[in-house]
Structure formats: structure tokens, C-alpha cells
Design a protein around this nucleic acid. Sequence first.
DNA 1: TTAATCTCTATAAAGTCTATAGGAAATAAG
DNA 2: CTTATTTCCTATAGACTTTATAGAGATTAA
Lengths: 165, 165
Amino acid sequence: MLYSIISIKSIDFWVFEMLSRKAKYGLLAMLALARRYGQGPVLIADLVTEEELPRKFLESILLELKKQGLLHSRRGRQGGYLLSRAPHLIFVGQIIRVLDGPLAPVSCVSQTAYRPCDECRDERRCGIRMVMQDVRDAMAAILDGRSLQDVVAMVAARERTDPGS
Amino acid sequence: MLYSIISIKSIDFWVFEMLSRKAKYGLLAMLALARRYGQGPVLIADLVTEEELPRKFLESILLELKKQGLLHSRRGRQGGYLLSRAPHLIFVGQIIRVLDGPLAPVSCVSQTAYRPCDECRDERRCGIRMVMQDVRDAMAAILDGRSLQDVVAMVAARERTDPGS
DNA sequence: TTAATCTCTATAAAGTCTATAGGAAATAAG
DNA sequence: CTTATTTCCTATAGACTTTATAGAGATTAA
């Protein structure tokens, strides 16, 4: 859970972000790699320039994605990063799970990292859990149903229907 | 974003919680008040005992819910808290928004607290945003579609179909 | 007047997020 | 086999959030 107070014209309000910067940067990089899939390794330096991301932070993010099997890499000259498989086989949900953890709003409804809540005394009769189970399932359906290829295609379609600035 | 490392049998893994303890405590208290709706004010002390919540923390939570119009209170003897309207008119999403902020996974898709992302250069062509818009809508549909009465009824139904310990 | 309650302000420990620094290891080219 | 390139690894740090607790103030009913 990440909060920040933004002050505009002396009005303070909360801004909530479920998705961390880490996950956003990771997704931006993965999408850039998806657009270049089949064209050989891409340098971190190029990703940093194109997507305007903090270099050192991105390095650690890509490393994590590599360790979890979503990326391959090569060191030295002609090195760089590439997707470990075709863009239609990598899903947004997989990337977010690697970088931000399980998709579940509470651990007791997680498929990938189940753990009972501390507060809960009778899980089967917990109303909060019943609602959050539905939320998790809905989120997972969307995030595990959108591949990098899908997202790239969505952006391309938008560009066609809404060109100009 | 709230993480904790849990160690069980020497295996460390991440546990992700989208819903803060604050929101959980608040929901538990609101559900308890929903079950007692129409029976006069309920003491903080009783909520603390029944739901096993930290008293001082709960005090500040209830105060916040009151200031946002979801609760009424009375001080002094015969005092306590009550729902400001009937349980079928208070929704889980309203409670979470008060305690944890907007439901949106990223601020640029929030209905109640829209703000462009720092990272985003062209919002209309942001693939992440397109996916997260769907996530927000799905979450909001669920959380704004479940009233306290609904949740209480779900738990009661579960109790009937699955009695015993 | 007193006891019971909610209300308010301040504070603090622990933990997370967002990076950055500096160098080690691997690879390709010449 | 040397050099330039590039990823990989470890350590560290500031800012911020979360989760509370303490202590006293304000209000109400009996």
C-alpha cells in the first residue's frame, strides 16, 4: 500500500497506488521488449532511454524478472535482455506477481501464497473473506487473461482509432 | 502496499496485503454494528471485546468513519456508535475508500481521486492504464455492490449450510 | 457532581519503497 | 590475450507509511 499527499492549490488529498513503481517500471520494460520480440537482445541502456526509467532500479527489476524465468539475458558485447518466450505467452498477472507479490487483496484468498489472516477466527464464516475472494477472482481473471501481445495490440488499436497528438 | 516475511519451517515467502489492517478492523466493526442495527448505540469497548481489536487504533478508525458520515456517535453514558443509515445502504467499497483511499490500482484510473501517473507520457496510449482500468471497474463493481446487509446475510447463509465448528 | 464515553493531539517503533554506489563476473571483438 | 562492454551482485540510505499507544479534553446521563 503506497500513499502520498499531493498538494495542489492548497487542497490536500490522498492518492492510492496498488501497483508499485517497481511493477510499473517492470511492465513498461516488458512491453518494450515485447514490441521488439525477435530482434535480438535489448540493452538496459536503451530501455532506460526509451521509457525514461531510473537505471539502477531497472537493473534490479530486470534481474528479478530473469530469476523468475520471464526474461533471458546475455552479458558482454551484443548482450542485453529478451523475453524468455513469445509475448502471447507472458501475462500481466505473472509480471505483477513477481514484482509486487500475490494478486490477492488478503492473503487468506491467495491461490499462490495462501495464509490465514491473523485477525480471522473462523475463516469459513468471514464476511470480509467472502467479498475479497470475489475481488481476487475478478482481478486474476483480468490480469491473467491479458498477455503482453494483447496489451501491445490494444495500444496499437487505440493509436489507429485515436491518432494525432 | 504492505509486505511481511513469514517464516514457516525455514521457508521464507512474501505475503501481500492490499487491504490494510485499518480497513479490516473498520470492516469488522461496521459488520458488528450492522448485526446490531436498531438496538441503540454500541460501546467501543464492546466492539473491542467481541472482535478482539486494539482499542486505541479502533477509536481512531471509528472517528474517521464518523467524520465521513458512515457512523453516528453519542458521548457520555448510554453513548456509543451506530450506523448512520440502514445496513443495506452502506457498501463495502465506501468503507474501504474512507480507510484505505480510492479503489483504483493506479491513480490515473480512479473515479474518486483521478490523477495522472508521474511515469505516463501519453495516458490515452498507456497499455498499463488500459488493463488497470478494467481491474478498477471489476473491483468497484464488486465492492460497491455488496452492502453490509448483503455481507451479514452471506455469513448467515454459510452458517446454515455449514454448521458445526 | 460524578462516572462514563467519545474526541483530539502528539508521538514512536518497525517496516517498506525507491532508489544509488561500487565493483565483480562474463562475453565478444580485435 | 587484452580491452571494452554489459549484466550481475551486495550493501546502504532517506523518505515515507503503517500500526499502533499515551494522555488529556469535551460531552452526556444519572
